[in-house]
């Protein structure tokens, strides 16, 4: 059913009413003013379940303008259910232009990744956050974690990292790796792989984090330091991949493992589908890449078409 076939149900631009947007914008402004601090906001019910990005969607809805170009990714992909659903949600309710190209987007809503293409000034990255509280693992009481933040009392977080090293020999936290923002607030960067942590710090883009279930918004303004916690003798390190992307041959990017058959054969490909297809369009080839073809209209076809 196309939107035009609907009867006279109309939505406000970008679904949320203007009062709600203003409330959320106030929270965003406060979050920008206090980098890394979790600002509570009166989260609304959204036409999607919690866990599907309701926090990110509300942030996006509050900042979206008619001339914005929106990109939505889920685990680096533009073509997974979550990304497709949210993109079409805003196409429907705001009628804004959408894109899969990182460089063409003004607002990028993301679940669990930072795009490989470096962000630039003027872009806004909106993270979907499941659990905003980095101390939750060790301290279940919300009142207490807020007090710990107020007092910058973050020894607890190091206890978690200590436990990692004691149990695994290294810091085994591979995603949602906690950062200290401008020497003050401890922040959970949402479950991005720790590979992406360096991209968070001092980014020229504005980064906004929305947690729908817990109704919290926090932010990293442009050029804000976000330093991963670590120990002197166990410094923070990003993951390294032994081989380049099997499709585009890129190195130094975050790769997804794809199981190929029952015998356990596998391949590693860029998690960022836009970055990967861009490289292939530019003529880069990985060891398992098919000869380059013009991508189909549906972006999902790009990856599927390349799979053996």
């Amino acid at each position: 059913m196309s939107p035009s076939a609907l009867p006279a149900i109309t939505y406000n631009f970008a679904y949320l009413d203007e009062q709600t947007k203003r409330m959320i914008r106030r929270a965003i402004l406060k979050a920008i003013a206090i980098p890394g601090y979790q600002v509570p906001f009166a989260g609304r019910e959204m036409p999607m379940p919690y866990g599907w990005g309701t926090g990110g969607v509300q942030v996006t809805a509050a900042i979206l303008g008619a001339d914005d170009v929106l990109k939505v990714i889920d685990q680096g992909s533009d073509d997974t259910t979550n990304a497709v659903a949210i993109r079409s949600f805003f196409e429907t309710t705001a009628g804004v232009a959408t894109t899969t190209k990182t460089s063409a987007a003004t607002i990028i809503q993301t679940r669990h990744r930072v795009p490989e293409t470096p962000l630039v000034a003027g872009q806004i990255l909106v993270y979907q956050v499941p659990i905003p509280e980095p101390l939750r693992y060790l301290e279940p009481r919300e009142a207490e974690t807020r007090r710990l933040h107020a007092l910058a009392d973050y020894g607890l977080m190091h206890v978690k990292l200590y436990e990692d090293i004691a149990r695994h020999g290294h810091i085994a936290t591979t995603y949602g790796y906690p950062v200290e923002v401008e020497g003050r607030y401890l922040m959970d960067p949402s479950p991005v792989p720790k590979f992406d942590n360096p991209k968070l710090s001092e980014s020229p883009a504005l980064q906004l984090f929305g947690a729908g279930r817990e109704k919290r918004i926090y932010a990293l303004p442009p050029h804000t330091r976000a330093v991963p916690l670590d120990f002197e003798d166990h410094p923070f390190e990003v993951q390294r991949f032994a081989e380049p992307c099997a499709l585009c041959g890129a190195q130094g990017v975050y790769l997804d493992e794809v199981i190929l058959d029952d015998a356990g054969r596998r391949m590693f490909v860029c998690s960022d589908t836009d970055f990967c297809s861009g490289r292939r369009a530019a003529g880069h080839r990985g060891v398992m890449a098919a000869p380059y073809e013009e991508p189909a209209a549906d972006p999902a076809a790009a990856k599927a078409g390349d799979a053996p």
Binding site: L138, G155, Y162, E163, I165, A166, F231, E232
Partner: peptide, 21 residues
């Protein structure tokens, strides 16, 4: 739920010890 070593080390980390060893 934290190891014995982590339990003892917590206060040290809270007062700024940052060397695991």
């Amino acid at each position: 739920t934290v190891s014995a070593g982590g339990n003892v080390g917590e206060r040290l980390m809270a007062v700024g010890w940052r060397h695991f060893g």
